[in-house]
Amino acid sequence: MALAVEINQLSKEFATPFRRKKILAVKGVSLSIAEGEIYGLIGPNGSGKSTTMKALLGLLAPSEGTCQIFGKDSVKVDSRNDVGYVPENPYFYKHLTGEETLRFYGKLCGLSGRKLKERISELLSLVSLEHARKQKVGTYSKGMLQRIGLAQALIHEPRLLILDEPTAGVDPVGSREIRDLILSLKEVGKTVFLCSHLLEQVQEICDRVGIIFNGVLKREGTLDELITMKERLELVATGSPDAQRKLLELAEEMEGIELVSSGAPKTSLESLFIQMSQEEK
């Protein structure tokens, strides 16, 4: 499969004020993302996630190494024809309405006339902001800003989407909507590269994950590869309390098996919250 992103031995150095010392924000990061894949880069604050993304977008020049988007060097402007980007906590021109914002970005990408008009309506519908198309962006909530951010990133139908903390500051319902939107983009063949520190969300939507600490990519792989505890076995059984007790006793008696824990499986707090809010509606 063709590669959407290819980062090869990327390092980025920043000079401190008065250039006395240099800080190495990213150290020899190499990763690749296949077309149609959702890749999540996770790590704590200041680990080099955003620096990696900015280098990929040409906002920062690599100190060493290369970044390519669909085979094009990301330093070159034409590599941006195939990318849509949503920064962390995006802000747009407050004096423009949602529709005007999309028109502005569409025109920047060379769209015009009926095609642009149709694309704006299509995207406003996709991100559920039709009701706010004439509303000034300055009055949008955080969730709405993220969604208009996604719409502007998609205006020129890019093959790759780069999302920096796409659900930062968004409530669980809004966050779930954005998650669903990202999954629907995968269904239409888009490649998504996102960074987040919301691990549960990354786990839910990403095909592959990279874990970065102090500018170094520590681990990388598919979710199964990363989170499967091969030395443990989890059974989820349903049945009468008697049958459950017998199963436990059987497990305890079995040679070579140590029962670590047992009990009723739990849902996540996020799932519970979503379920309750849907019931309230």
Binding site: G58, L59, R80, Y85, V86, P87, N89, L108, H156
Partner: peptide, 14 residues
């Protein structure tokens, strides 16, 4: 400051 520049320069805009 508003990071609107990021969204502009990430489009094919020299």
């Amino acid at each position: 400051e508003d990071r609107t520049l990021y969204t502009i320069l990430c489009k094919p805009v020299p």
